[in-house]
Write a protein that binds this DNA or RNA. Structure first.
Lengths: 220, 220
DNA sequence: TAGATTGTTAATCGATTAACAATC
DNA sequence: TAGATTGTTAATCGATTAACAATC
């Protein structure tokens, strides 16, 4: 079990890490404590070679003749993905999408601490949704000043996407998880992860049209 | 302007098509009727070479010395993506996520006709949400028998994901847009597009941790 | 015709897979 | 030790970029 070396990690590898994380947790849940790259490859429907190459971007986490210790590997990948950084998040926009994200175990299961929601609707401002307080958007800057907030989930209408992104950047947010469908231009200031749900629907339609009976993951 | 030839279209190309669609519609909205691969490449932040290669998978849609007619190209890409197929969809699970997807212009803007929602909650069954009727899950098979339904959006709790996927497959659904986070095994029967929202959050955390001030699209 | 820009081939780059020596 | 399986290098495959002849 050698230690870090971390050479250039490709986008492809980065995007596969969360999937490893998911599968390893699944194994832990089943009390499987040891797995070979071959067994994992069968499970995940990829090649064993790819698994070994991917993991070795970050260090030698396995042991020759044995395979991988699931708990150890899970811990390593969790670390790499920042699960232990205790990142904090707020949700901007308490509409259906914002609520869906707040309710799900989306954050908790990944070590991200959800702190608050923001909206402009007077009917919900200052109330609680899923035991999460809803603040008025006017108090965003004040809140950000007084609390450490790493991530903002942008679930607001298209029309205010750019403006809101700008405000968040000005407050020094580190990352924006952007569901607005608008491409923000905050480069070099903020890390942005765009989720274009509509694009995935179109890919699905394309596959149906071409009769591809496939099972495609987003990101792939 | 030559016509179809359609050689092997890579996954990468497929996944970029909806982005072209979005940008071309943007140009149309601005009444820009003509664009060169070079101009479009600047706009979309890709290479002109890639644009020409991508489009030429489906035919020669441009004209030497002129560039591309935006309206014509938009129409071609819409066709390729099945926008004119009048695909119909239902949403399974009328929780926050289901409602978010039903409310948004997600479907209408892409030529998909949203027909109904399904749920098990007696409080909303037989009511309307966003002028969409909510049926009880028990009547799924009956509804599918009497109506053409191409796509099902799976927005149900994890626990019933596999079972519901199975029922949909049995009814002959063509495509499933799967938000449950569970990987369905319906291969060779149904086209499945999995959306793992949590995975994208983790990628965002990874980027933050490594201080990559990047602007990443899902799918890329 | 001269200028512009495509369609397409060839060159490069990167990612995946195969193979195997190292080693537990 | 013999067997198993990793870590890692080399070979293959595919996707992106560059270049340019074709042509509007």
């Amino acid at each position: 079990m050698q230690e870090p070396k971390q050479i250039r990690v490709s986008n492809a590898v980065r995007n596969r890490l969360p999937r490893y994380f998911r599968y390893l947790r699944g194994l832990l849940d089943q009390n499987i404590l040891r797995i070979s790259s071959f067994e994992l490859s069968r499970l995940m429907n990829v090649t064993a070679s790819q698994i070994r190459q991917d993991l070795n971007c970050f260090g030698g986490f396995g042991q020759q003749g044995y395979g991988y210790n699931v708990k150890y590997l899970y811990g390593k990948i969790a670390d790499i993905l920042g699960v232990n950084e205790a990142y904090t998040a707020i949700i901007i926009g308490a509409g259906n999408l914002g609520r869906a994200l707040s309710a799900a175990s989306t954050f908790t299961n990944r070590g991200v601490i959800l702190k608050a929601m923001f909206d402009v609707d007077e009917n919900i401002v200052e109330k609680d949704i899923n035991s999460l307080h809803v603040y008025h958007m006017d108090s965003l800057e004040e809140y950000m000043n007084e609390n450490r907030v790493d991530i903002a989930v942008l679930a607001v209408p298209k029309e205010v996407a750019a403006k809101t992104g700008e405000r968040l950047a000005a407050c020094g947010i580190k990352g924006i998880w952007n569901f607005t469908g608008i491409e923000l231009s905050l480069e070099n200031r903020v890390t942005v992860q765009n989720v274009h749900l509509g694009d995935r629907l179109m890919t699905l339609c394309y596959e149906i049209k071409n009769n591809n009976k496939s099972n495609k993951d987003d990101m792939q």
